[in-house]
């Protein structure tokens, strides 16, 4: 009953690496030319875990939205989008038509209180420069700019409390 008009799925990592898997997906994986059995289990007692090469690894789904997945595998976080051959092609096609500037939303990494705002609307920031200071766990955490660019908007005010993933600052990426 399955729809099998898609021949393969491609997991694209956040760093742009592609991992291809034949459809329908089997509990097998080829690593360095060798095929291994691989299996994902879920039990109420142990949660989600993977068994590969005789070893058990913990798996946690941090976020899953549409075809975007952030998972913690063996305590390390990985982000992938799952694409089909055509959706990959589409991404390339649409990127050509689109200007290469992107806006990035800097989100609160944890709930806390904004104790200081360093950047302003319109200020030029470089990667790694502090944008604002978020207090949480009794520590002042500098929230750093992930890119070089210009601050489009600051969506929080001093002393406001924020939730995890609230948008703090929007930055327009510098061209080139």
């Amino acid at each position: 009953m399955n729809m099998m008009n898609i021949e393969k799925l491609i997991a694209v990592s956040s760093s742009g690496k592609d991992f291809e898997f034949e459809m329908p997906l089997k509990d097998k994986i080829v690593i360095q030319g060798e095929e291994y059995d691989i299996k994902l289990y879920y039990t109420e007692e142990s949660g989600l875990y993977l068994v590969w090469n005789g070893k058990k690894y913990p798996v946690e789904i941090v976020k899953s939205k549409q075809n975007k997945y952030e998972i913690l595998f063996n305590s390390i976080s990985y982000s992938f989008t799952i694409e089909t051959p055509f959706s990959l092609q589409r991404m390339k096609v649409l990127k050509v038509n689109k200007p290469s500037v992107g806006n990035i939303s800097v989100k609160a990494p944890m709930p806390g209180k904004i104790v200081d705002i360093i950047c302003q609307k319109g200020s030029k920031v470089s990667r790694g420069e502090p944008l604002l200071i978020l207090e949480a766990m009794k520590m002042e955490n500098e929230i750093l700019s992930p890119i070089d660019g210009t601050v489009l908007s600051v969506s929080v005010s001093k002393d406001s409390t924020v939730m995890k993933d609230d948008i703090l600052v929007e930055i327009e990426e510098k061209k080139g």
Binding site: S13, K17, I31, Y69, I71, F73, Y78
Partner: peptide, 23 residues
């Protein structure tokens, strides 16, 4: 290796969500 395994897991989750046995 772990990145490839993680890629398989993400693909598996997607597959389960959309192509799993609907019986």
């Amino acid at each position: 290796n772990e990145e490839a395994l993680a890629a398989w897991i993400a693909t598996k989750l997607f597959f389960e969500e959309h192509f799993s046995d609907d019986s």
